[in-house]
Design a binder for these strands. Structure first.
Length: 901
RNA sequence: GCCCGCUUGGCUCAGCGGUAGAGCACUCGCUUCACACGCGAGGGGUCAGUAGUUCGAAUCUACUAGCGGGCACCA
């Protein structure tokens, strides 16, 4: 007797299989030796080198792995390409913090030494998430792993930069940008966090140069007034029409500034007059360009006032300067009032520092052409296809339509240094290497641009740079474009859209056919999980407690809608894993004789496939299995993760465990060996084996663990593309479901048996019959049903714990609990001396009432002439059949009630 | 301000034009020879509201309310 524990312990399976899979090369597409195999590719959204696994990752990884394993088993040349990104700012901050502990700054080390330190840090602490990816069971091809700072990736970045620059799509310019005074770098619009904050609205009075009087402007940032170069009013604003063109004296600095008219101004807001600081506000910057205003920078990159702010202010921190400006205005009697005011302010996404809009020399990428190409692709070819399409397609296209140029330079040391060099006389040379630049410039006296590129610039090239681009490699030819991108919705702009644009630009094709946007796992209160709130659930803890497979099932069923995290849910899938374990345990404990019967997978599956005289329950489960397989494949095709989990759960637990195992038990557990027993056992294992294959993409560890133990010819079960490989369920053929084995008649007949058994059990329960007590069950059925019941009489007897007699003409005893079934069958449980007539009458009456309600509803519908004439004929006849059945059952109930009175 | 999503049994969620579903929780009964992380039997919902479209609406349309999210140059 084989020794199998009663409870599944995931730890053991999780510890052993991954390494074996990886070592044998099962994760690489090369394992597939069919040259004509269709190709399936997913590139991982490269996690951050500083990061560790969170629920969002686990969710995405589960879905990617499910799809990859599914396609791989189906014989596709499947590649899931892993990688990691260098996360410029975050990583630089990590190392800077480390240096600080040693009392050093990065400037003490210098750029070169600092970058060396980052690499050391990366080797030691970076990429924790990669081991976590292994733990999840992710079947990624480690041989193709890429890091965005690898030389091959860097080369792609330089190449893309040079090409875009050559076409005028990358330029350098002095523009207003989002500056983080803490991180000392510029940020793109997407890295800006807009947060509402309580502040004040200050009303400042600016006197006219001539004729007395003043204009009052409202501002949330009084300190910027030091850099004001105009005041704007709306051209249609009657209050100010006469003063347009007049000159104001800017208090504190005594600069003469004009009043200009601009229809950007909202007359209703504040006083209807706006101070204009072109150097410190994006809107004012634009206005300044329109009116040709001077740009006076009064705040520096550290957030301190510059010399241009005047002697009283120079060197002051911006908020101190604000207080001083207000104080001075008040002293001058020019502060009209101060209101409390809440508005949205821009903060650094990472360090939450309030950003300072500054005019600064940066590199930008023009977006108009790239954007137009992406939009055209969406409109003409509907690529990429978003799932769910609503709302993401619109979110994506709306964003593209309003896209502005992308600030791609960053004032960091960790990242891809911009491939631009300057000659001593200020000429700019953009080249793939220093040597190339020197050649172009005709001198070796060049200085490379100090800045690095936005991390997302390299990420934008990910779907093809990882495959070898800019070289035309085999991988690029084979695996681009990828099949689907799976990601969270907050990354649609940052990454998805940019990949589409660069993919179209450099490859002429969209980088992925589909984009599946996952839902978000929220905490139990419906809040987003976040580090700062401390409400996150660590997937690794969940793995430890419930097992990886159960966690994967939970996450897969999240699908594309936001879901609150519920440990109860994981627990239920842990229980499901245990159920699978025990079902397999039962099969294995009753497998004796199976091996001798020959290779189940071949010999017996032929027996199974033959439309021979298999018992009803065998034909039924075969039908259910094939139907399930077809549905599972169809649902996976549509990314219906939630649905597919339900389908599998229901099939395995309800159909296979609750019914099939129970129905086949008498044969399977028969004392003596016989052909019948061998066949029953083999069929049981065949169903189990195929179920495990269906479940494998979701529950890789458990299914492999069990599959390896089955007494089957494993090699024969491999997909032909993997023939000859050391057997693993991950290379076994994914059941597609054979439509010819779907047997509706068997399903209908089996349903009648199931209903019958359920009714008798119901009687047992309601009549308080002890589980151990044997009862009599008398069945009277019409001929068709009678044959069905007669063929299954042993099973009915076993599952109702009764002596069963079937006789179409039987006289039902009076002292019996009775029930009516659909299709013209009655069942009676004689309870001589035990039955409480009043109670039984009440039970039957309740049932009759239910039937009557249903009948009324149906009759009302059938009584509607419009329904009968307009609804499809099948619908009408279906209802009629139901009414008839109900009438029959009701009249049978009447007879029973009469017999009891 | 504009756009979008959600609102289904106590809880978490499916279903998205033809008899209201699951898991958990709940009630009752079970050491039935795979499994108490289990087995069997139950109770529980006018599918947020209103008005439409339709023979028929949880499912389509419009509006309303509550919740959540995205975008935006109101200083």
């Amino acid at each position: 007797m084989i020794d199998i524990p009663k409870t599944y312990d995931p730890k053991e399976a999780e510890a052993s299989h991954y390494e074996r899979w990886e070592k044998r090369g099962y994760f690489t597409p090369e394992i597939n030796h069919d040259p004509n195999a269709p190709v399936y590719t997913i590139v991982i959204p490269p996690p951050n080198v500083t990061g560790s696994l969170h629920m969002g990752h686990a969710l995405q990884h589960t879905m990617m792995d499910v799809l990859t394993r599914w396609k791989r088993m189906a014989g596709w040349r499947a590649l899931w390409l892993p990688g990691m990104d260098h996360a410029g700012i975050s990583t630089q901050l990590m190392v800077t913090r480390q240096l600080k502990k040693e009392g050093l700054t990065r400037h003490d080390l210098g750029r070169e030494k600092f970058v060396e330190r980052v690499w050391v840090w990366k080797e030691e602490y970076g990429g924790q998430i990669l081991n976590q990816l292994r733990r999840e069971g992710a079947s990624v091809d480690w041989s193709r792993f890429r890091f965005t700072m690898d030389e091959s990736m860097s080369r792609a970045v330089r190449d893309a930069f040079v090409r875009l620059y050559g076409e005028g799509m990358i330029y350098r310019g002095n523009r207003i940008v989002n500056w983080c005074p803490n991180d000392q770098t510029v940020l793109s619009d997407l890295e800006v966090l807009r947060e509402p904050q309580k502040g004040r609205l200050y009303y400042l009075r600016y006197p006219f140069k001539h004729g007395g009087g003043s204009i009052t402007v409202a501002t949330t940032r009084p300190e910027t007034m030091l850099g004001d170069t105009a005041v704007m009013v709306h051209p249609d604003d009657e209050r100010y029409r006469r003063v347009v063109g007049k000159t104001l004296i800017l208090p504190l600095v005594n600069r003469e500034i004009p009043v200009v008219a601009d229809d950007f101004v909202e007359s209703e807001f504040g006083t209807g007059a706006v101070k204009v600081t072109p150097a410190h506000d994006p809107n004012d910057y634009e206005a300044g360009l329109r009116h040709n205003l001077e740009q006076i920078s009064v705040i520096d990159k550290f957030g301190r006032m510059t010399e241009a702010a005047g002697a009283d202010f120079v060197g002051l921190e911006r908020y101190k300067a604000r207080d001083l400006v207000v104080e001075k205005f008040e002293a001058l009697g020019l502060l009209e009032k101060v209101d409390d005011y809440e508005n949205a302010i821009s903060k650094c996404e990472r360090c939450k520092t309030v950003l300072e809009p500054l005019i600064s020399m940066q590199w930008f990428c023009r977006m108009d052409q790239l954007r137009d190409a992406a939009l055209a692709k969406l409109r003409t070819d509907h690529k990429p296809k978003f799932v769910p399409e609503v709302p993401y397609e619109k979110v994506y296209s709306d964003w593209l339509e309003n896209l502005r140029d992308w600030t791609i330079s960053r004032q960091l040391w960790w990242g891809h240094q911009i491939p631009a060099w300057y000659t001593n006389d200020g000429q700019v040379i953009v080249a793939r290497s220093r040597a190339e630049a020197e050649k172009k410039a005709g001198t070796n006296e060049l200085t490379q641009d100090e800045d690095v590129l936005d991390t997302w610039f390299s990420s934008a090239l990910w779907p093809f740079s990882t495959l070898g681009w800019p070289d035309e490699t085999d991988d690029l030819e084979t695996f681009y474009p990828s099949s689907v991108l799976i990601t969270a919705r907050d990354i649609i702009f940052l990454w998805v859209s940019r990949m589409v644009m660069t993919g179209l630009k450099f490859r002429g094709r969209e980088p992925f056919a589909d984009v599946y946007v996952t839902g978000t796992v929220l905490d139990k209160h419906g809040q987003r999980m976040s580090k700062t709130k401390g409400n996150g659930v660590d997937p690794l803890d969940v793995f430890d407690k419930y097992g990886v497979d159960a966690t994967r099932l939970t996450l897969a069923s999240v699908g594309s809608t936001d879901t609150r995290w519920s440990e109860k849910q994981v627990e239920s899938y842990r229980n499901f894993a245990n159920k699978i374990w025990n079902a397999a345990r039962f099969c294995l404990l009753n497998a004796e004789g199976v091996s001798e019967a020959g290779a189940i997978a071949t010999g017996l599956s032929n027996a199974f496939d033959d439309k021979n005289n298999l018992p009803l329950h065998d034909r039924w489960i075969r039908s259910r299995l094939n139907k399930t397989a077809r549905e599972v494949n169809a649902q996976l095709e549509q990314y219906e993760f939630h649905g597919v989990v339900q389908t599998l759960y229901h099939f395995f637990w309800d159909d296979f465990c609750d019914w099939y195992i129970e129905l086949s038990k008498s044969m399977v557990t028969a004392e003596a060996d016989s052909d019948e027993r061998r066949i029953a056992r083999a069929l049981l294992i065949t169903i189990l084996e195929q179920s495990l294959r269906l479940l494998h993409p979701f529950m890789p560890y458990l299914t492999e663990e069990l599959w390896q133990r089955l007494p089957v010819n494993h090699s024969d079960l491999l997909h032909p593309s993997y023939a000859g490989a050391e057997p693993s369920i991950m290379l076994a053929a994914y059941p597609q479901g054979d439509a010819s084995l779907i047997d509706e008649a068997a399903e209908t007949e089996m349903q009648a048996v199931i209903d019958l058994i359920s009714r008798v059990r119901n009687i047992r329960s309601e009549m308080n019959i002890k589980p151990g007590d044997r009862i009599q069950v008398m069945i009277a059925a019409k001929s068709a049903l009678q044959t069905v019941f007669a063929a299954s009489v042993d099973q009915i007897a076993r599952l109702t714990r009764a002596e069963v007699s079937i006789d179409g003409n039987a006289q039902m005893p009076k002292a019996a609990a009775r029930a009516v079934l659909s299709g013209g069958a009655e069942v009676a449980v004689p309870l001589e001396g035990l039955i409480d007539f009043a109670q039984e009458r009440a039970r039957l009456a309740r049932e009759k009432e239910k039937l009557q309600k249903e009948a009324e509803k149906l009759q009302a519908q059938l009584g509607n002439a419009d329904f009968v004439s307009r609804a499809p004929v099948e619908k009408v006849s279906e209802l009629r059949a139901r009414v008839e059945d109900i009438a029959q059952r009701a009249s049978a109930l009447d007879d029973m009630l009469e017999a009891l009175s």
